[in-house]
Amino acid sequence: MEAVVCGAGIAGLSAAHFLSANGWDVTVVERAAGPRPEGYMIDFFGPGWQAAGQMGITGRIRELGYRVDRVDYVDGTGRSAAHLGSESFTKMVGDRLTSILRPDLELAIREALPAAVQLHYGTTVTGIAARAGAAGGRGGKVDVALSDGRQLTADLLVGADGIHSEIRSKVFGPESAYFRFLGFHVGAYSFRDGHLQDVPDNRYVITDTHGEAMFFYRLRDGSISVLGVHRTEQVERPADIRQEFKTRYRKLGWLCPQALEHCPEEFYYDQVAQIRMPRWSSGRVVLLGDAAGAVSLLAGQGASLAMAGAYVLADELAAHADVPSALAAFEERWRPRVAEHQKAGESAAKWFVPRTRRALLLRRLFLRLIRVPGVSRLVSGAVVGRTGAAV
C-alpha cells in the first residue's frame, strides 16, 4: 500500500511514521524549502503522549522540552499581579507534560521517521484525481501530481498541510466554508538580548493586560521566546505584519518595547481560528490535524491531538480491509475528541486575553481561587479533560 502525505509538520510526520511502521510505502511532500524554524512554545500533554510512546520519542521530547514551574502575570513595571503554580496541574498528568517549541517537537518526530519514508521539501501537490475501484472501495487509487513534475499513484492521500490546507481547498472547497475566526491574531519569534534579565528560567511571564498580551519564556541557550496575542475584528492578516505587531504591543510597557526592537522582518504570524468540517474524507483523500479540525492555540493540545490522530488513522487502516471503511471508522472514533477540544478553545477565548479591564480583574480573582485545593482539582480536571483516555 502506498500513501502520499502532504505536509511535514507534526501531523504529517506522525502520519508518515505510523503508516510506514504498519508497512505502507510513504512519500511526504512539504512546500517549505526545509524544516520551519518559526514557532512558539506549547504545552505538550494529553493523548499525544501515548502516540509519542509508540514512536519511542518521549525521552527525546523531555530532553528538548522545558519545565515550567510557574506562570507570572506582570504589570507595566514587571511586578507580579497574579501567578499560577504548576503543582495542581502536574498532579493530574504526572510526568506526561513538558513545554516545548513546536520546531523541536517536529525535530523529535522527524528523527524517528523510519528510513523507508521519502521526505521531499520544496514540493507540494498540484493535482488530485481519483481512480474508480470495485464496489466496496477495493481497488481504487488516487493520482497525485507534484510541483516537481512527478506523477504518483497512491492508495491514500493524507492532507496534513495545516489550517490553510491546499489539499482541503482542492478536494472539499474554499477555506471560507470551514474557517471559524476566533477574534485573535498571534505572532511569535525568539531573540537574544543580554540586558533582559527579568525573564527567569522555568517560568512563563505574561503581561497582565487586556486586548493584547505578550508571553515570554527564557530558552536554555539564553535567548527569549516571545508570543504576542491580540484581539481584533479584522480577519485577514495585515499588509505589514511587523508594523502591526510593533504598534499593537509597544504600549504594554515592561520588556515589550525592548523585545519589539528585535522583531525580525519575517516571523510566525497568523489568525487564531478553528476548522469545522462536516466530513474529513472523500474517496482516498483524508484530512488530518489542523487541516481537518484545528482547535486553536486557545484550546491547547493541538500538537498532541495531531500526533494521536495520526496514530488512530494508521490503526484504523490496519484494522480494515478497504481504505474508505477505515477512513469512516477513523472519523467516527476521533471526531468526538477533536470536538471536545474545539469547544474548550471557544470557552478559553473569554479569558486567554481578556477583552476588558473588568474581565482582567475577574481573571486575577480566578487565579487566586485556583490555588484553593478543591477548586484547583476541579479546574485542572476541566483543563486536562480526558488526557488519560486511550486513543
Rank of each mutant, 00 (worst) to 15 (best):
T387F: 01
E63H: 14
T207Q: 12
R357C: 01
V338T: 06
V186W: 11
Y249V: 04
G46H: 07
P103F: 07
V285W: 10
S380P: 00
F216C: 08
R150W: 01
Y73M: 15
L97T: 02
I10A: 11
P278D: 08
A348E: 04
D43N: 07
D25M: 14
D75I: 10
R386H: 03
Q151C: 03
T387P: 00
S282V: 03
V29D: 07
E38Q: 15
V372M: 12
I241D: 14
S304V: 02
G381H: 00
Q301M: 13
V323D: 10
A348F: 10
A292G: 02
F366L: 11
H262P: 10
Q271N: 09
R337Q: 04
G59P: 03
A328H: 07
V375C: 02
D161G: 04
R333L: 08
V286T: 11
D201S: 11
V26Q: 10
L288F: 02
V93I: 00
V74S: 09
A8R: 04
H83C: 14
R150Q: 06
T90K: 01
E106A: 13
I128H: 06
Y217L: 13
C256L: 12
Y311E: 05
V353R: 08
E316H: 06
S380R: 01
G293T: 00
T27P: 04
L219N: 13
W334V: 03
P174Q: 01
V144M: 07
S80Q: 14
P114M: 14
V379H: 02
R110I: 08
G345T: 01
G162H: 10
V286N: 08
R102N: 05
V28C: 03
I370L: 11
G85W: 06
D72C: 12
F18W: 11
A321T: 09
G94V: 00
V142H: 10
G34R: 10
C6Y: 01
T27K: 05
Y249E: 06
F215D: 12
A81K: 13
R284P: 05
A303G: 14
D198F: 07
D270W: 05
R364W: 11
V353M: 11
I206C: 12
A299S: 11
A344Y: 01
R96G: 02
K251F: 05
R138Y: 03
V71N: 11
G187N: 15
A108C: 13
Y121C: 07
A108L: 09
A32G: 08
D240L: 12
G46F: 03
G140S: 13
A321G: 12
A259S: 14
G194T: 07
A3N: 11
S223V: 03
F172L: 08
L97D: 01
E346T: 09
G39C: 08
H195T: 11
A291T: 10
G122H: 05
I109S: 04
E346F: 06
R150T: 07
A348D: 04
A389H: 00
